[in-house]
Design a binder for these strands. Structure first.
Lengths: 125, 125, 125, 125
DNA sequence: GTGGTCTAGACCACT
DNA sequence: GTGGTCTAGACCACA
């Protein structure tokens, strides 16, 4: 199971927050292959958002072969969910670090400051 | 002076990329107080993007008192450009680290991987 | 007798897969007029799917006069099972070929590729 | 450019028909890399369907790296649009042929009948 | 002008 | 009950 949380102030669209949390849930082992996700309706009620927004998030993950849906049955973590090609993974890591550094530096933060803050936050969880 | 580069694939809007690069230019000392920036027109031609996009970026930095526009003369780095309140700075640092960690984790990257990559990238420049 | 197989990934609904396999069983001579089909209950257990799904498939074939259900006895291949009006048959052939071509082309397959693959597969059985 | 057509009777969802037609347009050379697609609004008016339906189709193709969208600018055929891994392509060909044969046979059509019909239809276009 | 997101609500298809 | 599709309409963000 997994506890979803939405932050309306973040500027990140709801459906993307859901996608990120599911991806993180899988990567961190909270969600396991074959596990059923909350139904679109249940999650819509829980998060107090529209049903279509949940559908959109699930759909995108299905296209990416991370989720599998069976109409009339439910939505499940797909078997390929864990597999991320090493190549693609490294490229992605490089990408997001690059962008993050750019932003951090634009505020004048040094590499040390940033890493300290990350260690602080990272240690908590 | 400063060399602007735009990446259409990054998902970061053009005007924000420009803002980030100017802020970074100042923080890193490439841009100094009083220095003149390219005219909107010149930059629009150079980056092959719409004039309004540049205007929007300059305007937002002007609101933040980082740039100063003199009618008919041009746009300059303002005197307050370097000053960022300590309080605001820490909050910002926390914010961007928080979001970055969330994203990194959604791809399954560990804190160590991320920090290593950052050190690698950070050392180069 | 006939061995049913369901493919959840195909996108084709279960009840339709069952219908197709029964129709194919008849057309290929594996199922003969008067033969008894598995009970809905038995088939539901065997395929590990809901009882209603089997019922739906049988019911649709009953409407098409391909199956006959005798209360308390079971479901059988009806005597009209083999008869398909020539007109309807040609229209159907045209329909399914049309749709198949559209799909094949959307993936960039040429007519030759498709026909070769079909001959390959068709020869096996 | 490309001429879109929707068939409400086909049972195939609108957004999927659009996806198929774009894929086919690319595969057949009617749509070339970098070409701009109709705006979501324009296409919605042209096809007399809701704007969201077009958005959905474009979005799915964007996730598949077939289209690229720049907010405020438009939607374009992406550079990777033509590249389909040979492996994946063959698997797909096998898949769709398999399913097609199954259906064709369930109606009692022989391999010859089917191939003749396909040649007939395929020759026209 | 472009696309992006979200809502409310409807109806359909499948299990 | 499950998910799938579509509409009408709104408001936002970007160029």
């Amino acid at each position: 199971m997994i506890q979803f949380k939405l932050d309306p102030k973040s500027g990140v669209p709801f459906y993307r927050q859901i996608i990120d949390q599911i991806r993180y849930g899988i990567a961190s082992g909270q969600l396991t292959v074959g596990e059923q996700l909350p139904t679109v309706r249940a999650l819509a009620v829980e998060l107090k958002i529209n049903l279509n927004t949940i559908t959109k998030a699930y759909k995108e993950l299905e296209i990416q072969s991370i989720l599998e849906t069976q109409q009339g049955t439910g939505t499940f973590i797909g078997p390929k969910a864990v597999v991320i090609p090493e190549k693609e993974k490294n490229a992605k890591l490089s990408d997001i670090c690059q962008e993050f550094l750019m932003i951090a530096r634009s505020y004048g933060f040094s590499l040390e400051e940033v890493i300290n803050e990350l260690k602080l936050k990272g240690g908590k969880q």
